[in-house]
Nucleic acid binder design. Structure first.
Length: 669
DNA sequence: CGAAGACCGCTTTTT
DNA sequence: GCGGTCTTCG
């Protein structure tokens, strides 16, 4: 981003600019004033994994059954509150509701207290704590200082900001009133993580005197692509509404293709990619496959490998999320920030040192009494001889190691120090001694991790980067012509000549879960996602859907997405190769077409295909109960059928549990 | 304490 | 169908 901006300004320096994501800038700001909210500037930024572990621990102390009251749910509520910049004190018991056994507010309060004790922040805190600082009249001087520093504020992707980000912006923009936000309400796809389209819709009211400039000319896509995208998004009620137009030629129509199953879909797309490359001179790097959900990627990877089409997965399992990388980082974290209990707990017995669960629990209990971090407690207990001989010696020497590493922090090059830590701790040796097939790769990853540290100034600077930019920037240089494979969310802001959009099936896209959780709002967000997908294409867009999709390891038959129906006839061209009747986007699959044409390749379904249009993702059971139906059970209560296998139903009940039951025991609502 | 096996939940999307 | 977590046993 810095490079691009500098280039656009004719090489002008952008050093000293506050240029980054909300979280990165807020983190920087918070480090400067950490002590105002009871932190030190070396505070740790927890990722959601650590944060969740913390919530889990708190739930345990409250004796909440993780089955009935999943910590994940508590975590989600806390996140949503923080998205709205609400501290525990801003919430009353009634608002917290009776979720988590009525203890939700207590959990949040405790969670915040623990974060402070850990000298840590989660993502939401970065903004929340900044807001608390800036809006406190006692800190007027600080705010005034930022008003002086930030004469102009520019925001991109404004439709994806949440309430907290909006409040932070407003505090900062109050000074000069010079704020410019760019966004597209039709591209708001992060509602599930607290983004508020409302921010963009009410911008004029929030910033009095604001001037609205509508950008309706599209410079990216050709006419048919624009037409198709506009036709779909027009079905949304909740939008400002705009009419996109283009100077460009109408170009190619959007290709819509129905196929038999995911395998056929992957083959179709892979072959199309080859054709485009060989006969149309299209570069692979100008093509992308955009999926709704990560699990769809696999079939494409397999096919690409088989056909030797270079590809690259974006946003897959991340480098920094790998166990060995996280372990290594945990060591560094404890060195930099001794109060980081989560990190310390992670590595206290990795590699194996003979420090078991019991010892850790004792340490925790003692820490609570003494009100000190684990590392301090451990040191004190060792010194006082409160631990059993063997455990005491081990912990004692580990603590000495940490002391030594810490003392080298200022004198030694951080890359060398990191290598030293991994060596002396025995962590690297642990993997080197490991005979399992993946151990080799883990050692490589650790080396890569250390190599990657060199471009940062210090160990803390590196840790900051890791916390905020959870991406691998592995230089995949060996071949720079590859097809991109990513989720629709991941594709936002990008563009390609040719875009493939597979999996347009009811239940998958739009996602059933999204609709269940958020109803019409959820559906409209899905539709915006469709809009985003289509408009990633400059010249060619391909939409496909299949009759049979494998999910959770079993076959599911699917209907074309309603979004396929919504594509304007004039802008599309439908394929007819799958034994379907008529246009290829009819609501009904012709089962006779399947049997004659695809007898040999028919997935193993144990029920006739005839009933498949009764409901989305449905195979009727003997009692006519189908997937997606809501049923009641005398003991378990109400639930939704998530899978049907003959007379056996998998039902997810309201308490979150899933049970396999015979259909005769439940009743359809 | 660790290994092996059962079991469960998961597939929406992520700064 | 898989991978992570919990349970059980030695």
């Amino acid at each position: 981003m810095k490079e691009r901006i500098s280039k656009l300004l004719g090489g002008a320096p952008v050093e000293g600019w506050a240029l980054g994501t909300f979280h990165a800038l807020a983190a920087r700001m918070l480090r400067r004033h950490a002590e105002l909210v009871g932190l030190t500037s070396s505070f740790t930024i927890l990722d959601q994994d650590d944060a969740l572990r913390l919530v889990k621990q708190i739930c345990e102390t409250k004796n909440l059954d993780p089955k009935k009251n999943p910590p994940k749910m508590a975590m989600a509520m806390i996140d949503r509150w923080k998205d709205k910049a609400l501290s525990p004190t801003d919430i009353n018991q009634r608002e917290a509701g009776d979720v988590m056994g009525g203890q939700m507010l207590a959990i949040y309060t405790e969670y915040q207290a623990r974060l402070k004790a850990l000298n840590a922040c989660d993502f939401g805190d970065l903004l929340l704590q900044c807001i608390l600082i800036l809006r406190n009249p006692a800190n007027a001087q600080i705010l005034a200082d930022y008003h002086r520093r930030f004469k102009y504020i520019m925001v991109d992707e404004y439709q994806d900001t949440n309430v907290a980000q909006y409040m932070w912006l407003r505090l900062l923009a109050q000074g000069t009133g010079n704020i410019c936000c760019v966004g597209d309400d039709d591209q708001s796809i992060y509602g599930w993580r607290g983004a508020e389209v409302g921010n963009i819709l009410k911008f004029e009211r929030d910033f009095v005197g604001a001037k609205v400039i509508r950008l309706e000319q599209n410079y990216r896509s050709t006419g048919h692509i624009l037409g198709a995208a506009s036709g779909v998004i027009a079905n949304n009620q909740d939008r400002l509404g705009k009419t996109l137009w283009s100077d460009d030629e109408p170009g190619e129509k959007v290709r819509v293709q129905g196929l038999w199953d995911g395998d056929a879909e992957a083959r179709y797309i892979a072959e199309e990619i080859e054709t485009l490359q060989k006969h149309r001179g299209e570069k692979l790097r100008n093509m992308a496959v955009l999926v709704r959900a990560g699990f769809q990627m696999r079939e494409f990877e397999e096919r690409f490998i088989q056909m030797a089409i270079p590809y690259r997965v974006f946003g897959g399992p991340r480098f920094y999320e790998r166990a060995e990388v996280r372990d290594a980082l945990a060591y560094f974290r404890v060195v930099v920030q001794p109060a980081d209990d989560l990190a310390f707990e992670r590595i206290i017995n990795t590699p194996k040192r003979g420090i078991g669960d019991t010892t850790v629990q004792n340490l925790y209990a003692e820490s609570r009494v003494r009100n000190t971090p684990l590392t301090t407690t451990a040191e004190q207990m060792v010194a006082a001889g409160l631990l059993k001989a063997r455990v005491g010696t081990t912990i004692g020497s580990l603590m000495k190691d940490f002391d030594r590493w810490r003392s080298l922090l200022t004198t030694m090059n951080h890359g060398e120090l990191a290598a030293l830590i991994l060596d002396e701790s025995g962590y690297l040796a642990m993997w080197q001694a490991d005979k399992s097939p993946e151990a080799q790769g883990r050692v490589e990853n650790l080396k890569e991790l250390i190599a990657g540290m060199e471009e940062f100034e210090s160990l803390p600077a590196f840790l900051e980067h890791v916390s905020l930019v959870m991406e691998t920037q592995t230089a995949g240089t060996e071949n720079d012509d590859y097809v991109s494979l990513m989720t629709l969310h991941g594709a936002k802001g990008l563009e390609f000549n040719c875009v493939f959009l597979p999996g347009w099936e009811e239940g998958l896209f739009p996602s059933q879960k999204s609709m269940d959780e958020s109803g019409l709002k959820g559906l409209e967000e899905e539709r915006r996602l469709a809009y985003v997908g289509i408009t990633r294409a400059r010249k060619r867009a391909y939409i496909s859907f299949v009759a049979n999709r494998r999910m959770y390891g079993n076959w599911i038959n699917a209907l074309p997405s309603r979004f396929v129906e919504e594509l304007p006839e004039d802008h599309i061209e439908s394929g007819q190769e799958t034994g379907m009747h008529s246009s290829g986007r009819s609501k009904h699959w012709d089962s006779s077409g399947f049997t004659s044409q695809y007898e040999d390749r028919k997935p193993k379904v144990d029920l006739p295909l005839s009933g498949m249009t009764t409901s989305n993702f449905t195979k009727p059971s003997t009692t006519g109960i189908a997937m997606g139906d809501v049923v009641t059970h005398p003991t378990f209560g109400q639930g939704r059928v998530i899978h049907v296998a003959g007379s056996k139903l998998d039902i997810r009940f309201k308490d979150g549990s899933t049970k396999r039951l015979l259909d005769s025991f439940v009743q359809k609502v």
